[in-house]
Design a protein around this nucleic acid. Structure first.
Lengths: 239, 239
DNA sequence: TGGTGGACGATTGTCGACAATCCTAGCCAC
DNA sequence: GTGGCTAGGATTGTCGACAATCGTCCACCA
C-alpha cells in the first residue's frame, strides 16, 4: 500500500537535483489514481485540489487532464471542469466485444508466425499461471493472465492492433479483479488458456482463433456476472 | 463583439472577429491543417510559429498539441518539440487490417438488426454513389463512400467500435483520395458495396461479414498499390 | 407566495514571463 | 585536421496572475 503522498504533498521538491519532476510524471500519477479506484467514478476533479495533491502546477495538471480526456478516462465540459468518467455497463460490454475481435485477429496471426522462443516464453508464463491457480492466488493469476495475452500480441507483431488493445484495457481495468472472484473462474480460465496454447504449438491459425473466441466469450459472460453482483451489493456507491 | 485583448497583439488575426476563440477551436484548426496535408509529414511544429499562424496563445496551441499527440497525429519528444507524425507504409497497412476486423464485426451486427429506415438511408447513399461513379467524380464518390460506411456503423449501434474506427480513420486519411485514382477502382468499389447492400437487405449476418471482408481486402490491395506509386513518383518529398 | 434579476463565490480558460533544456557554432589543445 | 569543451541562441516546460464563465443565493416585487 504505497501511500506515496502523505496528504500534505511535498510542496517544494526543491532539491530537484536527482529527479526532474517532468510533466509526464503527474500524468502517470493521476492516471494511476484513477484506474486504481482512488478516485471514484463521476467524482469531480478540481484542478486546484489536484495541484495540492500532486504538488504540481496547474499547467501540468491541466495537460494531464487533456491527455486523460482524449484517452477516455475523464470527461470534460466547457468551463465546467473534469470528472472521472463513469463507464456504463453497456460500454464495458462493448469494450470487451471489441477486444474479442482484435484478440482473435492477433491470436490467428500469432499462431501463423510463432517462433520457438516465443513459445518457450508462453510456456513459462502458463506454468506460472498454473501455480497461481493451485495456490488460489487470484491477483497473481490475473497479472500473469495479462502477461500471457501480451505475449501473444508481441508474437503477432502487430503494432496498431496492440496499441488499440492497450488503450481499451485501461478502461475496463476496473472490473479486472472483480471478474476473478467468481468461484471456479480461475480454473476455467486456465483450461481455456491451455487450449490456446495447444493451438499455438500446432501453429494452427483457425484453431487458435476459435480457442481465443471461446475464451473471450466466457470472459464476457463473467463480466456480465460481475456487473450483476456489483448492482446487488454496491460496495462503492458513486456519489 | 468581445474582441478581448487588443493590446499588443492582433495586427493580423483580424479576419476572424465574430467567433469566440475557444481553445477547442484551435485544436480543430490545427488538426485540419495536418490531415489536409497543409503540414507535411515529419515537419516540425514550433509552438511560437503556430501561435502566430492561428492567432492563439501558446497555452491553447500546447493543449491542442497534447490532444493531437494522444490521437496519434503528431509526435512529441521531451524538450524537443512536436512534429507531424509520419505514418510508415507498414503502419498504414496495419491500420487498414484493424479496420477490416472491426468493420466486419459491425457489418455483421448491422445486418442482424437493420430497420427499414436504416435500409432506406443506405439505399439513398448507394444511389448517390452510383451517380458519382457514372460522372467519374472520384472525390464525391470518396466522400459518399465514407458516409455509406458510417451509416452501417450507426445501424450496428456499437459506440465503442465506432469510436475506435473513427480514430483510426484520421490516420489513414492521407491515402484516401489517392486510392480512388487507381483506374477502375471506383467501379469495382461500387460493385462491392452493392454486394454488401444485398446482404443487408437479406439481413444475413454471415453474408454481410463476407461481403465486407471481400470489399476491404480489395481496399488493402489498392492501398498497397497507392503506396507503390507514391514511392515511384514522390510528389511530396518529406523533409 | 412565487418568480425574477443581480451580485458573489468558485472554478476554468488564457496570457505573459521566467527557468530548464537542447542544439549549434566557434574556440582551443593536441 | 580532429576532437572535446564552452558560450550563445532557440525552443520547450512551468509558474503565477488575470479575465471569463458558471452556479447559487438572496433581496425585491407583483
Amino acid at each position: 500500500m504505497t501511500t506515496r503522498s502523505p496528504l500534505a504533498a511535498p510542496p517544494r521538491p526543491a532539491a530537484t537535483a536527482h529527479r526532474p519532476p517532468q510533466g509526464g510524471d503527474t500524468y502517470r500519477e493521476l492516471r494511476e489514481a484513477i484506474v486504481s479506484g482512488r478516485f471514484q467514478p463521476n467524482q469531480r476533479l478540481v484542478e486546484a485540489e489536484l495541484t495540492k495533491l500532486f504538488g504540481a502546477g496547474r499547467t501540468s495538471i491541466r495537460s494531464a487532464l487533456t491527455r486523460l480526456d482524449q484517452e477516455g478516462l475523464v470527461t470534460r465540459e466547457q468551463n465546467r471542469g473534469a470528472r472521472v468518467r463513469l463507464i456504463s455497463d453497456r460500454e464495458a460490454i462493448e469494450t470487451e466485444q471489441v477486444r474479442i475481435v482484435l484478440e482473435r485477429f492477433l491470436a490467428r496471426s500469432a499462431a501463423e508466425r510463432i517462433t520457438s522462443g516465443d513459445l518457450a516464453a508462453l510456456e513459462d508464463t502458463a506454468q506460472a499461471m498454473r501455480e497461481r491457480v493451485q495456490q488460489g492466488d487470484a491477483i497473481g493469476y490475473s497479472e500473469l493472465n495479462a502477461r500471457f495475452h501480451q505475449r501473444i500480441w508481441k508474437t503477432a507483431d502487430h503494432l496498431v492492433a496492440s496499441m488499440v488493445l492497450a488503450s481499451l484495457k485501461s478502461q475496463s481495468i476496473r472490473f479486472q479483479y472483480r471478474t476473478m472472484l467468481r468461484p471456479g473462474r480461475a480454473e476455467e480460465s486456465m483450461r481455456e488458456h491451455e487450449a490456446i496454447l495447444v493451438a499455438l504449438r500446432a501453429r494452427d491459425g483457425d484453431a487458435c482463433d476459435a480457442a481465443m473466441a471461446d475464451h473471450l466469450r466466457h470472459v464476457v459472460d463473467t463480466l456480465r456476472w460481475a456487473i450483476e453482483t456489483q448492482h446487488r451489493e454496491p460496495a462503492w456507491s458513486a456519489h
